[in-house]
Design a protein around this nucleic acid. Sequence first.
DNA 1: AATACACCCAACCGCACGCCC
DNA 2: GGGGCGTGCGGTTGGGTGTAT
Length: 311
Amino acid sequence: MRAVTMSSLSSSSLCKKKSLSSSSDCDNSDQLRRGPWTLEEDNLLIHYIACHGEGRWNLLAKRAGLRRTGKSCRLRWLNYLKPDVKRGNLSPQEQLLILDLHSKWGNRWSKIAQHLPGRTDNEIKNYWRTRVQKQARHLKVDANSTAFQDIIKRFWIPRLLQKIEGSTTSSSSSSSSTILSENPTVVAHQPVNYAAQNFQYPIPPPPPQEVPGNHQGRHDHNSDSENGSNPCISSTESINISQISQVSEYPASLFHGMGSFPKDSYYVDNMEAMSLASLSVPAGVVQNLGESNWGGYDFGDMWSMDELMAI
DNA sequence: AATACACCCAACCGCACGCCC
DNA sequence: GGGGCGTGCGGTTGGGTGTAT
């Protein structure tokens, strides 16, 4: 748990953050504490909330004996300590939902987070900034531009769909029945004709090499194993499917991460439709993306998105 | 092995809004 | 109306850590 790591920090390090602009913060023990939370503080907060509940954060901070602002307590609780906070990498389903909802609502992180149970607005915001915006920087486009939106829709989302499909086909036979029976929110769905829904994200060619389950270069100290979840399927298990189908244009069954997948019905194999001339992408990016075929684009770069996205 | 660089994300900030007195 | 308080949101920062040189 990261809190343990943080709590191992020396108290002096707690004073190093820029936010500790007032040097007296550390000189006067009566002043409010800032910086990383210690294990003791976490325990105080958890115990107090367990006994008295949330709310009235300033009062809570005082009564719990925490020398923290109410704001800080609230943030710590909501983003880290709350029992239903989900940790670990975002699943492809969750990433897909984020991309989709962000295209609808923009930087309304809390609103987006409402549709990803267990995920906080902070986490989603961080995901967007570190993964999505990074990819935009690589392509030298503005992450909020229509050009990048196009790239997301035509490259990134299909890649996610492919990942989801991969996980569903590999897990459907063995685990779907288990998951379905275990999760009341995952109900039986009628097969959906995705083509009829004008679902036309093309699936790009497969990456040159794939190392299943090891796309992340760095060690994830919030690994899924830590909370006992399967990185492929469980992160969205608790998502209310009907809710998702209301907010997302994607078929609800995608968010099961399992179940039978009408592979060819949603996949429109239409490379002509991918004519880059139809993209509202700047010339420089178009050059990157290639003019005549998928290979024209540096898919080495694009597939490195797997690492960026940790899918 | 040492150093530099890049990345991630917890925690901060300022601001806005709603409610109550 | 307006001041105070609590809460929520989006943007930003910087320490810790992984990776490259």
